[in-house]
Design a protein around this nucleic acid. Structure first.
Length: 112
DNA sequence: ACGACGGCCCTCG
DNA sequence: ACGAGGGCCGTCG
């Protein structure tokens, strides 16, 4: 796409896929970076997913705070891990010691 | 074109 | 439980 061209609308297909998927995570539920990577067709691109979320263009539509690590840890957040944890708790997600407790709430299936 | 850098993941000790 | 080390991959300088 336009990586060097206009500074407007600079986003890759990869990023769009990630953002679109995250946009459909219901309130109170979470998924993982790993699951997202798998869903976009690049199962090992977990770090790249984190990068994409870090550039979240529209936090309202794309609730990137609902994406956590695969081991249950809350994980990073542009606004700070602490704030991320608060947001999740506020949505009803049980968190203890930085870990998501109700792990079974994670959405494991995303279809392209 | 190339190397560094992440909101990561996995395997060992 | 916890850290270290290697791997992975899209982005940005």
């Amino acid at each position: 796409m336009g990586q060097r061209g206009l500074r407007v609308n600079m986003c890759s297909e990869f990023e769009k896929r990630v953002w679109d998927l995250v946009a459909y995570i219901p309130k109170g539920k979470v998924t993982t970076y790993k699951e997202l990577a798998r869903a976009v067709g690049l199962p090992t691109a977990t770090r790249a997913v984190g990068n994409a979320l870090n550039k979240n263009p529209h936090p309202i539509r794309v609730p990137c705070h609902r994406v956590v690590k695969s081991n249950g840890e809350v994980g990073g957040y542009a606004g700070g891990e602490k704030y991320k944890t608060e947001l999740l708790k506020q949505e009803g997600v049980d968190i203890c010691n930085g870990f998501v407790v109700k792990f079974f709430k994670i959405l494991h299936t995303f279809n392209k």
